[in-house]
Amino acid sequence: EFSQDQLTLLNYILDAYNKHRIPQDMAKQLLQEKFSEEENFLLLTEMATSHVQVLVEFTKNIPGFQALDHEDQIALLKGSAVEAMFLRSAQVFTRKRPHGHTDVLEDRIRKSGISEEYITPMFNFYKSIGELQMMQEEHALLTAITILSPDRAYVRDQAAVERLQEAVLEVLRKFCRLRHPREPQHFARLLGRLTELRTLNHHHAEMLLSWRTS
């Protein structure tokens, strides 16, 4: 069972995850009919910026994060922003959406000047996330775990970050055992997505470069 502290940690992270979202009007813009490569580019850039702000607001609510060294907080956020963005956008693509919406989103991304080489791994990742049928708690906890990665560049006090990540990992492990009793591999499969995210992170840097030049 969860200890009282673990329950508090879970609810704290879940509330923050539900509270801090991309503004509704911006999300709606994505579904408009207007399509031009420039508009898609601008909209996706604006979405990415808004997502970083939402990510920071979420992260500030992770118990213990604001007690970390200030520069380490920045190193963690900078190192995880792209992965957290892919994880969150995966949720958009896997949640039961009115049929048309996901195609509009996918079409918009495919027609925004991003080369196919980067789009395919992105949608493969969304598919593999979809197969896990993750609950909201799992998305929130996995996002926190991604951010609290002690091995990000420029992090100095790795032990302090590891202690925080360990606490969240333990909550996720218990949550999976409680809510997926017939799937002993579920927790391991969730963590497997984190390694997939790291390759997307690498792709993303190259993609931005090629996107800017084109």
Binding site: L42, T45, E46, A48, T49, S50, V52, Q53, V56, E57, K60, H70, Q73, I74, L77, K78, A81
Partner: peptide, 21 residues
Amino acid sequence: PASNLGLEDIIRKALMGNFED
């Protein structure tokens, strides 16, 4: 607009205050 700021600038600004204000 915020989208011209670099990633680190956006993070620093958001960490300091509530960015939405």
